[in-house]
Design a protein around this nucleic acid. Structure first.
Lengths: 337, 337
DNA sequence: GTGAAAGCGCTAACAA
DNA sequence: TTGTTAGCGCTTTCAC
């Protein structure tokens, strides 16, 4: 009933400890007969190597950590799955770690991934404790990259999507449909992505010689989208199109307009952002900006592993391109009564 | 630039290795002066203990693993946060691991949490590879519990919510409002929870001497909810109320009814399940069944830790009670033209 | 191809 | 209170 160790395998198989270790590590310098003997012994004994011992002996864990706060986001979900698969292909495992809101304060210190040498590298996914994390990770000399950073010029490697371009394209799409009264619902200032998307909107409007109208939502969520539209209508604003900084906001906005008797997209066009899972499930289907989640994850892994094995001395940050997905919530603007 | 180890601390602080170790483990048998000396030396050196060495030496990792497939679910999100907090309070860390759809097949074998002795215990969160996992975990003698199991009588400790009761209560609520033509949209057979919710519905209907009408959705999602209602209406079914087995289904159903000119809740009442984050954000706000996510997480941790430290020989499965949340999507039934 | 020996960094008896 | 002495289970030179 006690834990079976490599020594038991040695005994059972009749070869030396070193040979067993070699089999474990797929070394080619083991005679086939011996390999079989060892494999058989392992099987019989139900042997599994001790990861602690291996990590200790070779100085690395084969684990990559990723930190996140929310689980309820299609984009993060997609990124994480991509990371997981890329990592697997490289022989690494992924350990996620959620930062509770409560941890927000002393987060960096309490984080198990950072605590000790539990992982070989870390991916920071859109964290707000970015500054502390970066400091702590640099101090501990743990290789890391950041996906979706929020600090303007972090001194770290980042993997991002061009949110400025996304905002620009979204607005441009509306402009091309003949809209001129285009309102933007922007997410919290805290998000660099929100700020960039807004800049993109403003740029597109400026280029069209149109005055921007932006409403600041307190959160990236449905309720805020709803409230934003309601207050805007109360104030007499009559946009013919809305570019929402996130799909949740867009969904809330749609709800609100419908509540006021608007038909989408006849009376109002709506563009969201992120292509959340519900975007193509609701009615009308939401036109939105999609982030290349797979690519984001893959790039993060590629760069991080480069940093770990030191193959590339000077890794560079990456900025990817988003894509406009046109669905049914936007239409050409036709004046009507 | 080389890794600083406990030996460096020993040298710098002037005390013995064991004393340093004692400080590390908060042993009370260390003179305050020495403790300070050690602490100072650690700080100066920027020392952090090696988790691999610690795990190896004491035979446990202080890590608990949890497996999941989706990140986009409010209930799972809530459970995981609760688990994380409970664990933290007990000095454990939580490592999440997602099973890619691709892993579905040979999942148990490829799972890093199971692979070696990486964790002290595992929580299986609503997995479909339940059978394989259970087998593998038992073979490896890794303590584990299952939250939201899908196999009728798993030979394992489970923490669940009474889905039968939830379905019953949801239906009862509609019945109490005077509805008699109550349709149920059920989730995939694969889910034990879906089957139980349906049984609850059927029971309630039977008690009211009403014939049940159930539509099977292929997925717990918005699109399926939409399609279910559309086909049901095409077939001439005219329910006055719908109990959807999940909020996504409910949302899709609402969309479809609205699309057909129904007003909610005047013409049709809708009850969902799970109290997803959007349930109280959409319009009208969705009446639904809420699962005690915090309690689920806490209980899972409590039982798992009991199993690990062996304090309780015979842990028992737990079944918790869901709660009906009445909001605006349901109303008393009044005949009208 | 194979094996003996020397760690990896820490904890846990056991004495002192 | 503190230190000595063994390991924990595996990988990795370096000879054979």
């Amino acid at each position: 009933m006690k834990k079976v160790s490599i020594l038991d395998v040695v005994e059972k198989s009749g070869v030396s400890l070193v040979t067993v270790s070699r089999v474990l590590n797929n070394s080619t310098t083991v005679r086939e007969i011996n390999r079989q003997k060892v494999l058989q012994a392992m099987k019989d004994l139900g042997y599994t190597p001790s990861s602690a011992a291996r990590s200790l002996a070779r100085g690395s864990t084969g684990l990559i950590g990723i930190t996140l706060q929310t689980l309820g986001d299609t984009v993060f979900d997609g990124i994480i799955h991509a990371v997981n698969e890329s990592l697997e292909a490289k022989g690494y495992f992924l350990a996620l770690s959620i930062a509770s809101p409560a941890q927000m304060d002393n987060s960096a210190v309490n984080h198990f991934l950072f605590q000790e040498d539990r992982v070989d590298g870390i991916i920071l996914l859109s964290t707000f404790a970015e500054k502390e994390y970066v400091l702590e990770l640099k101090r501990k000399k743990i290789p890391f990259v950041i996906i979706d950073n929020h600090i303007e010029d972090t001194k770290a490697i980042t993997i991002n999507v061009d949110n400025f371009l996304g905002g620009y394209e979204a607005t441009k799409h509306l402009l091309n449909l003949g809209h001129t009264k285009i309102m933007h619902i922007s997410g919290p200032e805290l998000y660099l992505s929100a700020r960039d998307r807004r800049r993109g909107y403003e740029q597109a409007m400026a280029e069209a010689d149109l005055a921007p109208t932006v409403i600041m939502a307190e959160q990236f969520d449905i309720r805020c989208g709803f409230d934003s539209v309601k207050t805007c209508l109360e104030h007499g604003l009559k946009p013919t199109a809305v570019f929402a900084g996130e799909d949740g906001l867009a969904l809330g906005a749609m709800d609100a307009f419908r509540d006021e008797g608007y038909h989408i997209p006849r009376d109002i066009s709506i563009v969201g952002y992120d292509d959340q899972y519900f975007a193509k499930a609701i009615h009308p289907r939401l036109t939105t900006i999609r982030q290349p989640m797979e690519k984001l994850g893959q790039e993060a892994v590629r760069i991080l592993l480069e940093m770990i094995d030191g193959s590339s001395k000077r890794s560079k940050s990456v900025c990817l391109t988003p894509a406009l997905i046109v669905r049914e919530s936007t239409a050409e603007w036709k004046e009507h009564t």
